[in-house]
């Protein structure tokens, strides 16, 4: 019995796309990864429109550079690496834009999470606001730590996968995750009172 393309693993699909240029295989992979990548990039960049653009660029890069994928690597780590690099580039570009912007207001520089931290506890308990506060605190964490914290604690990837995506040693990944968590907890000290 012939297997349907949607039942195949990522690695088999990319192989199919590489060898036969089957656009259907590409579409299936896009369908599988668009949401996880959106989530990852949104948590990293903090802007929905920018995030959509970054994921689109990721998929275009995947379409154009399909042959640069090597079969010994996991497809998920490969596509996450592309997305992470594009997201980092976007952050750098935004940083430059903020520096050279003429009407450079202070509101743009800091996401003003401090104000919301001093809300009444009953309001902070409200999950929507809490999520917003966490997202803003996440954006205040250093990008090198933020990336690994998102991959580990939001995307649920293993240390090995994160190590492959970031190109860092597993020990470094673990220590960066720990530092990122410490930073985040400090930023959210009003929520997590000991």
């Amino acid at each position: 019995m012939v297997k349907r393309l949607s039942d195949l693993t990522d690695e088999v699909l990319i192989k199919e796309y590489q060898d036969s240029n089957t656009l259907e295989a590409y579409e299936i992979l896009v369908k599988r990864y668009k949401d996880p990548l959106m989530n990852f990039v949104y948590r990293f960049v903090g802007d929905r429109d920018v995030c959509t653009d970054v994921v689109q660029e990721t998929m275009i890069k995947f379409y154009l550079n399909k042959d640069s994928y090597r079969s010994f690597a996991k497809f998920s780590t490969w596509i996450y690496t592309i997305a992470a690099n594009l997201a980092k580039n976007e952050l750098k570009r935004r940083k430059r834009r903020v520096i050279f912007s003429i009407d450079n207001s202070d509101d743009e520089k800091s996401p003003q999470i401090e104000d919301k931290m001093f809300m009444a506890p009953d309001r902070a308990a409200d999950s929507e606001i809490k999520n917003e506060i966490i997202q803003k605190a996440l954006l205040k964490v250093k990008p090198v730590y933020r990336e690994v914290v998102i991959l580990r604690d939001i995307q649920d990837l293993s240390y090995e996968e994160i190590s492959e995506i970031t190109g860092l040693a597993i020990g470094t990944v673990k220590s960066r995750i720990n530092r990122g968590r410490i930073q985040l907890q400090k930023l959210l000290k009003n929520i997590y009172k000991e």
Binding site: D35, M38, T52, V55, Q56, M59, N131, I154, R181
Partner: peptide, 26 residues
């Protein structure tokens, strides 16, 4: 506590026209 809150964060999904726009571009 922090980890459980991070895991509870809502999952962001791609817009409905994401694939359409992508395939049009291609």
């Amino acid at each position: 506590n922090l980890l459980s809150d991070l895991k509870k964060l809502p999952k962001i999904e791609a817009p409905d026209n994401f694939e359409f726009n992508l395939m049009t571009r291609i």
